[in-house]
Amino acid sequence: MKKIILQIVYCVIIRNFLKIFVGVKFDKANFLIENEQFIIVANHNSHLDTMAVMASIPHKIIHKVKPVAAKDYFGKTKLQEKFSNYFINTLLIKRASGIEKGGENPIRQMIKELDKGYSLIVFPEGTRGQPEVMQPLKKGIALVLLERPTIKFVPVFIYGMGKALPKGDGIILPFTSTLKFGVPEMIDPNSDKDKIILTIEHRLQELKDNSFADGI
């Protein structure tokens, strides 16, 4: 039942809303079906980012993918938490500031979901920031990849969402945007977290440069 709801919500309603009204050009993502498990790593400028990445995922595997979101934002109340768990299928984690106050370690939480067979969507920039300005990436994703080195990461570059719905704005303005997939890649299990973060940053930058050069 949840699978059908997620399929209708993302692959029909949100996908068409983003395509027809907002003007998002989705990259083909059928190659994701061939990878049993993956972690999508995307840049983050807007609330629409999570929606857009989810809507780009093939409907066959949509129920196996969980976006990782901040609990202090998406899970403010119990009801909100239930809602986002059911309709957005989120994995809510506490940000660094929340851990100090106690609570489950977000790295552990992500690994637990991976072990259950879920794929993840991660925005390692943490917060949304200025449109089209990339912030330094948080190290958490590298720690997860080091623990489960057989799972590939897939870089995703999103352009324009930060203009369609910037931080602190309540109105979605249509804006011709693009969502580009990079090539799935496994990390070197012997490297360290800083090197992995550097590789991911590099891949995102490459994807950005390529999509600007193609003009797509």
Binding site: G23, K25, Y159, G160, T176, S177, T178, K180, S211, F212, A213, D214, G215, I216
Partner: peptide, 12 residues
């Protein structure tokens, strides 16, 4: 304007 680069989303 963008030093030879087209902006994504162009050409439809």
């Amino acid at each position: 304007k963008d030093s030879g680069n087209l902006i994504p989303g162009h050409g439809g």
